[in-house]
Design a protein around this nucleic acid. Sequence first.
DNA 1: GTTGAGCGTT
Length: 392
Amino acid sequence: MSVKYVLVSDEEYGEAVELPLEDNGTLLLSTLTAQFPGASGLKFRTENNVVRGVRLADGRFHVPDNEWGKTPYYCVFPKVENKRKIDDSVENPTAKTKRLETKLKCSDLVVLNIPYTYDEQKLKEYFGQFGELLMLQIKRDKNGQSRGYGFLRYTNLESQVRVLSQRHKIDGRNCEVKVPKSKEGNGSELSGKVFVGRVTEDLTADDIREYFSKFGEVINVFVPKNPFRGFAFVTFLDPEVAASLCGEDHIVKDVSVRVSEAAPKPQVPKNRHQTPPPSEPWERSNNRHNDNYRNWYHSQHDNRGSVDMPNLQSLGINGQDSYNPMLPLSPAIVAAALTQAAGWSLANGRMMPPPPPPNGNNQWSQHGLNSQRNNYNNRKRSNNDYNSSGNR
DNA sequence: GTTGAGCGTT
């Protein structure tokens, strides 16, 4: 099977770049953003001279019948000010009172794997694409040689979230951008993720994404399937959008769903198979605590031991698959969701989804993970490294 | 003089 390509440019009539399609005919969002940092969507002009958007679901662009047109597609870059586009009063009379007063602040971010040939200027050219930089520095040794990593900070959180939500290939190198370890738990980060309860089985991730995109850019929708669990997670680019929706009821395709805060997962000490959940780009940045939930959970599940809860906080996860402690969720739902998170495992140095259920089907509707196969730098060293004594 | 996992005043 030969690789197929689609022509994409950054703007209409811009110079097009060939982007490889996946085997199933979809285009990965990560493939797009690798070439066009910050891009969030794709458009094209139909024969009727109408601009049409390409369906984006779970990190992939889908076109009908996998027939990509020959006319170039071009990128959509989110508007910065599309926080909450529709009038609150239309759908959510209560929303007005819940505007966030707190201005969320950025934190410094580490950039790893910077090419040694890059100086601050060149790096600024790249990271400046995502927003206004407050500072950027490359760490150097005495001789001024780049150490290959550095720090940066944006002026606004959107830029930060955007940068954290995608992969960065700089000069052919995969540069990791993360919240520094030294900064973890400082609370400057906030999740853009909301918990969507009362989801019914006929609601697809697409439906949910389509609906919630009205409020702001949606960077991920997560709907556990098989078995159906009655909830979803929606991650917005803008945490304020997420926050503004919390506590509201929304009608998605005639289904009344409940949006609430996606509280972080609690920590759990005992877990035999404790392995990090996927480091989805959009999951990487945040870290909050929620003792309420932990207490609640334990009150529900003490002495059962049937569900291992992963230590997500130590994993740098911002509350993926988490719950609002105030919600009357059934323990079964909770348990199921926890199982989901705990199910991730490390295989061959790569995060793998939970082992398939007896019926052998893939459980999850989200496959962003599978697109991240380019961890070519993680060959394990030979075991004589174990008693290494810092010789250098 | 080199290099490629990492986490910030040299």
